[in-house]
Simulated scan of single mutants.
Amino acid sequence: MTKEKMKKKWASTRKLLEITDDEYNGVTQEDANLRFVKMKLQIAVYYMQLLDEHDSEYQVPWNKEQFKWALRKPVGDKKKEQAKDWCHQCRLIRDKACTSWSYEEAKTA
C-alpha cells in the first residue's frame, strides 16, 4: 500500500484522535483520562499504519463500536485499560510482522 493510500485509510481515525486545545489544557481527571486514551490509540494507529506500509496482514483489535465507546465520556479506568491493551496488542502484531519485512537500502548512483 502506498503512503498516500495508507494516510487516507487512517485519516478519519487520526482526526477522531486529535487532542483538542480544551482537552490538552484541561485540568480535570476526565481530561487527563481522555488524553491518555487518545494518545494510546494514536500509537496503536501508528503501528497499524506501519503494517499497512509493509503490506502486512493483520486484524485490528477493536471494532467500530468499541472504538467509539472508548472515546465517549465519561472516560474511566476501564477505558484507559482497554486503550492500553489495544496499544499493546498492536505493538505485538507489528513486532511479529516486522521480522519478515525487508529493509533493503536504496541504491544510489
Rank of each mutant, 00 (worst) to 15 (best):
S100G: 10
L71F: 04
D55G: 06
L16M: 10
S102Q: 13
V37H: 06
R94W: 14
Y47T: 00
E23T: 03
E23P: 04
E57Y: 03
C87Y: 04
K84C: 10
L41C: 03
E23M: 05
T28W: 12
K15E: 14
K9G: 12
E57F: 03
Q82K: 14
A109F: 15
L71V: 03
W101T: 06
W86Q: 00
H54C: 04
E23N: 03
I93W: 01
E65D: 03
N33F: 14
A70P: 00
A97F: 01
F67G: 02
D95F: 02
A106Y: 08
D77S: 07
K40S: 08
G76S: 10
T13Y: 06
Q29F: 10
N33C: 12
A44Q: 05
D52P: 01
H54D: 05
C90Q: 04
R14G: 02
R14S: 07
D95L: 06
Q42Y: 09
L92V: 03
M6C: 14
Q29S: 13
A109N: 09
T28S: 15
V45H: 04
Y46K: 11
K78A: 15
K73V: 04
K73L: 09
K68P: 00
V75L: 06
E18G: 00
Q66G: 11
E23D: 11
K15M: 08
K68F: 12
S56V: 02
I93N: 03
L92H: 09
K8D: 13
K9I: 03
Q89H: 12
L17I: 06
R94G: 05
L16E: 13
K8A: 14
Q29G: 10
K8R: 15
S12M: 09
A70N: 01
E57S: 14
A109Y: 14
A83I: 00
G26H: 03
W62G: 01
Q29C: 09
Y47A: 01
Y24Q: 15
V75G: 05
K9S: 13
W62S: 05
K64R: 14
K40Q: 14
A106D: 05
E53L: 12
K5I: 06
A32S: 14
E105N: 05
A70D: 01
K38I: 00
D85H: 09
A44H: 07
A70F: 03
A11Y: 07
C87F: 04
Q59M: 09
M39Q: 04
L50T: 04
H54K: 11
D85I: 02
V60P: 04
G26I: 01
D55C: 07
